[in-house]
Structures are given as C-alpha cells and as structure tokens.
Write a protein that binds this DNA or RNA. Structure first.
Lengths: 193, 193
DNA sequence: TTGCTTTCTTGCCAAATGACAAGAACTAAC
DNA sequence: GTTAGTTCTTGTCATTTGGCAAGAAAGCAA
C-alpha cells in the first residue's frame, strides 16, 4: 500500500515535517468503502478519523420530519469524521456515506490520541483540522442567514464546482437549505443570465 | 483577585484536577470590560481567550450590505474568543462586544500554547471547548435549514431564556436569521398561544 | 426492448418572510 | 420637562420559498 498522498497531505500543512509525516502516516490503516456503504451511521459512535484519498462522500442528518439534510460533501484530499461524536465518544446524529467508491486511510480514536500525545506536530495538525472545519461551518451558517438561496447556489457553483459533478441535485438542495423544487427553479433563473 | 470561579469551571469539566486547575488559573489575568467596549474588533487578530465570569457579551459580523448579524451571545461561566482568528493568527471578521459590564479572566495565544504543551489535562480541556463550540454551531446551522423562524424563536426562548433578559430584540432577530420586523410579528403570534 | 424507479422539472397556490414607512414606547441628555 | 435617539410594533405590499401533484427524463434491471 502506498500512503504517499497522506504523507504529502500531512506535510503540506506546514505543521508536520517530512520525517514526522512518515511516522504518523504509518499508523493509519488503508480503508476502502464501496459505493453506498457507510463510514458512519447515526446512533453509532464515530471511531474513524479518515483521510479520504479518492472518491466522494456525503454527510447527512435527519430533520424532525425524517427528511435527509445534507451537512457536508467530501472528496479528494480531506479529513472525514464527525467531530462531536468522535471526540466526545457519544452517539452520532449524522451519517457519512460513500456515494462513489472511496479509498483512504484511517485511524481510531485511541490511536489518534496516542499520536496527539507523543507528537506535538501532529497535535498542531489536528487542531488545524478542527479550526478549519469550524471556520467553514461558521461561514456556512452566516450564509444561511445573510444570503438568498440563489446567492448560496452561485457561491457553491463557483467555489466547489466538483460537488455538482458528483452529487445529486436533491442532495445539493438540502445542503443549500432549500427543497429540490426550489433549487430546480433557481437553476432555471440562474442559467438565463 | 479571586479566581475561584475559573478554577471551579476548569475543574467541573472533569478533565482537569483541582491541583492542575489552580496552576492553570494562575496564568490567567483578570480582565474587566466596560459596557459597550470591545473584546475584539474586526480586522484585528484575536489574542484573548477569555473566561467570562460575569456580564453579557455579543459577537457579530457584518453582511455584504453592512448590516450587523449577531453570531453569538455569551454570559456566565463561558469561554469567549473567536476560534478562527485566535488559532490561525489571522484578522477577525467578527466583533465581540460587552453589552453589559463584564468581568473575567484572560490568557494570550502564546501563554495558552505554553500551557497546552506543558499540561495535557489543559489540552484536553481546550479540545473540549472547541468540540462543544463545534457541536452547537452545527446544531444552529441545521436549525437554520430545518426549522421555521418561529420554531427557532421558541427553542431559544426555552433553552436560553437569559438571552431575552439581556439582549435587544434587534440583536436576537439577526441571531435567529430574521429581521426585527419579522421577529416582532412572530412574538405576537407566539404569545397568543 | 419493456417496465420500474429515481431524479429533475414545472404549474398552481399558500405560507413565510422581507422592504419600507409610520407611529408608539422607552431611554438618555440636557 | 423637552428633545433627540433608539427600539419595538404595525400596516401594506412584494418576493421568496414551500407543498403538492403531474409529467418528463434518465438510469437500471430483467
């Protein structure tokens, strides 16, 4: 197994040296997830901190009426896990599903903590992941308040076009906070321009 | 100066021993913030990690039209700082203002990091703060998508009634993602029931 | 190919919310 | 008390979005 892309990812954060990156990456185990399989199901405790190397994933929760609400999309070199469940060891309200065949590298809560304790560099990296996630979540919350659905659509289209190549409009709609019906209309208006 | 409440707060997390809590608290400096003064102004780098002992604060950002959007309220024993700016040492997009006279305990980025490195217990505590903030932010985002403004109003009223005793309806409105006009109508409808 | 299922679009109408403006209620300054 | 400023409410009307149902389009399996 070649974990070069994980090493590269750790190293490119500028928080982890090449040497340390190799040590860290050695603790991760390869993980394949078939299309439609789950990395995490609601009700379970998230115990996998995944570096996604290839494929496409979607995180979603259920609202009170039982509808699926997409909370995030993941692809390419990114860290995939459910922060709250993973770190507080509580049942997740979210699901994380591979919508395309995925390949990546995984580490358990216990091993992650051991690494955090023994390698200050990796600790910094871990904090960086959390802080970045926090910032993008806050941006998303703010956009839900200050922007119209059409503005959010346009922003997603230009900043993360990849999502439109891999996710269904239904999933994108709930991520944007509208019904699929509304998204369809928004797209119609938008393409006119 | 009596930092007993900070020690108690650290200790009550169950992550920090009494002994360690005292050591940690000793590094914090007392901080008073007069009414209407800012703990953080947008454009500045947040360098204060504050334990708020008493008073009331509001965090807000500006949208593209220049309107103020309240992003959070703080009171009683809670940690107040802007995660992204503080940890990535970048300019904040947010303001944090005391809307009532405040008193608390403060630590700089540099000192916080020193403590994180030297005291694993405090590191765990710090992670806990981040993770809790993450979870509540995600909850908020989800509620913006799945609930009506009235449902969000009711939830805030029952889970954080204190906010209604200290914040103006205008500030609460933007926190809930509606105009003050709409909030006024929602309150009218709600009190009918 | 045929039939089945899912996704996406469209029309119609209702509900939620916003924009704007006016007025009422409250507060602070002098 | 008077004045000025702010907050909150209310009315009118427009816009955005949702709910529902029907149909079109696309994908999949037998």
């Amino acid at each position: 197994m070649n974990n070069q892309s994980l090493i590269q990812f750790l190293n490119s954060s500028n928080l982890v040296s090449e040497q340390a990156a190799q040590e860290i990456a050695a603790v991760f185990l390869p993980k394949e997830i078939a299309k439609d399989k789950f990395l995490l199901k609601e009700g379970r405790v998230c115990d996998e901190y995944l570096f996604l190397e290839a494929g496409f994933m979607r995180a979603f929760a259920h609202d009170t009426e039982g509808r699926e609400i997409t909370t995030d999309f993941y692809f390419g070199s990114s860290i995939v896990f459910e922060v709250s469940s993973f770190f507080t060891r509580t049942e997740s309200h979210e699901n994380i599903q591979a919508t395309e065949p995925c390949m990546g590298w995984c580490i358990s809560y216990e091993k992650l903590n051991m690494l955090f304790h023994s390698m200050p560099e990796f600790r910094e990296f871990g904090r960086g992941v959390l802080v970045k996630g926090f910032a993008s979540l806050k941006k998303r919350t703010l956009s839900m308040i200050t922007e119209t659905a059409e503005q959010r659509y346009e922003a997603l289209l230009t900043t993360k076009p990849k999502i439109f190549q891999h996710a269904s409009l239904k999933h994108i709609a709930s991520y944007l906070g509208v019904t699929d019906t509304s998204l369809s209309r928004i797209r119609k208006e938008y393409t006119k321009k």
